[in-house]
Design a protein around this nucleic acid. Sequence first.
RNA 1: GGCGCUUUCGUCUAGCGGUUAGGACGCGGCCCUCUCACGGCUGAAACACGGGUUCGAUUCCCGUAGGCGCUACCA
Length: 507
Amino acid sequence: MERKVRVRFAPSPTGPLHIGGVRTALFNYLYAKRNGGEIILRIEDTDSNRFVPGAEDYINEAFAWLGIKFDEGVREGGAYGPYRQSERRDIYRDYVKRLLDAGKAYIAFDTPQELEAKRSEIPNFQYDAKTRGGMRNSLTLSADEVKSLIDSGEKYVVRFLVEPDCKVVVNDLVRGEVTVNSSVLDDKVLYKSADDLPTYHLANIVDDHLMKITHVIRGEEWLPSAPLHVLLYEAFGWTDTMPQFVHLPLLLKPDGKGKLSKRDGDRLGFPVFPLEWKDPKTGEISSGYRESGYLPEAVINFLALLGWNPGTDKEIMSMDELISQFSFGHCSKSGAKFDFEKGKWFNHKYLQELPDDKLAEMYMPLLSAHGHGDADPAMVTRVVSLVKGRINFVRDLWEQSKFFFEAPTEYAEKDVRKRWKDGMPQIMEELIGVLDGISDFSSAASEPIVLGWIAEKGYHLGNVMNAFRLTVVGECKGPHMFDITEILGKAETIRRIRKGIEEIKSC
RNA sequence: GGCGCUUUCGUCUAGCGGUUAGGACGCGGCCCUCUCACGGCUGAAACACGGGUUCGAUUCCCGUAGGCGCUACCA
């Protein structure tokens, strides 16, 4: 029977959501939506030691910004809650008991210190069929001993009993069949004594089963424990509804080796988190894509193409297009190095798609910060239309357009040397006269007049125009000259040429 | 160390037995042009290695090497 597709993204609230986690969530989302299914956000807070306040809110805010909407979750509600694992203790206890009663799990009293001692004493020590007979557990102790130990308040964990030498097959939608021998698996702790909570493995299987998850889509770091999960489904007798597994390739460091980590962002100067994050303990701030000027659509598009492709040359795709094209058949198997330059390119592309007035609106706070909050919106929109082609971020707008708002106070030495030749001040004086005589200062009307004057005088077009530009912009770059002067107006243009004649010293 | 996954330009990747090995980012050149960008065109740049299988391997299989992950009462 075909079950309705249900997937989940299950982060633990141990800090800000890593960009690799965002990518995993995105693939879950795309697959679910592509197949008319549902996506659940489950908070896996079964490690009370690593719990970080604020992390859960961060996760919700990040997905809201990115445009990934969950069908069920702590905030969204749903028929399969609670969606926070710390609120499901009773459920887990019940399922652990089932395993215990069925003889598929056992109680172990070994303390962390005892285990530590074993590990340093025996190389490659593993708690399994070979070694469990020499440990303190309900398999080696008599029922009476176990009972009295428990009654006396002795701490214990519950371990999964792994039968040795069995072939375990994990069926993975992107990797095919992955086979391991159960002897390489250890008797994993399913229930911890330290915080009276299950481990990831137990909670994960129980919740996925109860929440009717059909596809477990997660990072490749989980592949080694997937056989254990398969064994757990078998132990519970849930093999007929066991989800399909998909292990996604990891996001790797742009340089060097290893998977992308928090440190890489600080080191290489790009964010590894969707939103800025302030560590509640240390006060340390980690930059986010949102605060760095990224458009959420660009981040989504960029991330989608890391480890997946539509099978065509198309690269710029909206969320809806991604959804309609998505499949695991086009997922790659090997890790992808994080290419920050390409990320910038995506943002550049998406910025170009924005309407000018919208971009202008996004520019306003920055303009205000530079003391130009009173700028005319129509003028700003026009400015933005002229310079947007050269920006990767909204913040680049200032560097590219500040001369529209402030007269240059210094002049690029290199350009002065090249364009401010002897006699140029004199020609600029003439230019002032020509400009002063123009009544319609629009680009279209003024350009032929100035160009005509240059031609008539036999001046060098490039030299005169660049000297002109130097006085108005401060350097030889920027949009079409007459588009600039149209916005500046006659008075300001002439004022700047005069200022230039005064201040530019030829070399 | 053990176990598993993986391997096409510097990077992200297309390719699913026969291709001049394609695209994108970045880099170089040309065009456009008053400048710098944008844009258009274009150039350099890859099948890790060794065995098989096959008429034929980038493609399938096996090794080797490299890379990555896991190896906790963390997820």
